[in-house]
Simulated assay, not measured.
Amino acid sequence: MKKILSFLFLIFMAGIILTACTGKDQGLPDKKIYNVKWTLESMIKTDDGVELSNDMALKFDKKNFVMTDRNSAYDYTGTYKLKKAGAGYEVIMKFDGFEEPVTGIYGMRTYKDKDPKPDLVFEHWDTKYSFIGEEKK
Rank of each mutant, 00 (worst) to 15 (best):
K2M: 07
K2H: 06
F9D: 01
F9Q: 00
I11C: 04
A14S: 05
I16C: 12
I16M: 15
I17P: 00
L18Y: 08
A20E: 01
C21S: 10
G23W: 05
D25F: 02
D25W: 09
Q26D: 07
Q26E: 04
Q26T: 03
Q26H: 04
P29C: 09
D30Q: 13
K31S: 14
K32G: 08
N35D: 15
N35C: 07
W38E: 00
E41G: 14
V50G: 07
E51H: 07
E51C: 03
S53R: 15
S53K: 15
M56T: 11
L58T: 04
K59G: 09
K59A: 13
K59Y: 00
D61F: 03
D61K: 09
K63T: 15
F65Y: 15
V66L: 13
M67H: 01
T68M: 10
A73E: 12
Y74N: 10
D75S: 04
Y76L: 06
Y76H: 08
Y76R: 02
Y76I: 15
T79G: 10
Y80F: 07
K81E: 10
K84H: 14
K84M: 12
G86I: 02
G86T: 00
A87L: 08
G88C: 06
I92T: 01
E99S: 06
P101F: 04
P101A: 13
V102N: 09
M108N: 13
T110M: 13
T110Q: 11
Y111P: 00
K112A: 10
D115W: 01
D115T: 14
K117N: 07
P118Q: 14
D119N: 08
E123D: 15
E123T: 08
H124D: 01
D126E: 15
S130P: 05
F131I: 00
G133L: 07
G133H: 13
G133W: 11
E134V: 15
